[in-house]
Simulated scan of single mutants.
Amino acid sequence: MDTARAKQIYESEQTFLVQLDGDSVWIENVDEANGMATVMVENNPVNTKTVSCDRLHEGK
């Protein structure tokens, strides 16, 4: 996923299925300057990761 799309999803009031390595994630922040996103894995607030936006995939 490109950084702009990650930012759109983050700012949207709608819910989108986003995955990281097969796990569902919730985008918590997008760092546009560095192309990175902080995500919460599987609705678990203690399992957060900062990853490159290109590792995120939008579900169908």
Rank of each mutant, 00 (worst) to 15 (best):
V46L: 00
T50C: 05
E58D: 07
E11K: 13
E42A: 15
E42I: 10
E58I: 15
S52T: 09
L17Y: 08
E32C: 07
V30E: 02
V25H: 01
T15F: 05
P45M: 01
Y10A: 12
K49T: 02
I27C: 05
E28K: 15
N47F: 00
Q14M: 02
M1W: 08
M40E: 09
D2K: 11
T3F: 12
H57N: 06
E13G: 15
G35C: 06
T15P: 00
I9K: 02
I27F: 02
N47M: 04
H57W: 02
W26C: 12
L17S: 13
V46I: 01
Q8H: 10
M1G: 13
R5T: 14
E42C: 10
M36R: 15
N44W: 00
S12H: 03
D23Q: 14
E32G: 04
F16Q: 09
D21Y: 03
L17W: 11
P45R: 08
E58Q: 13
T38C: 11
Q19M: 15
P45Q: 10
D31V: 01
A33H: 14
E13D: 09
A4V: 14
R5E: 13
L17Q: 13
M40W: 03
T15E: 09
T38A: 04
Q8F: 11
T38H: 10
T3H: 08
S24C: 10
D54A: 11
E13S: 13
L20P: 03
K49S: 11
E28C: 14
V30P: 02
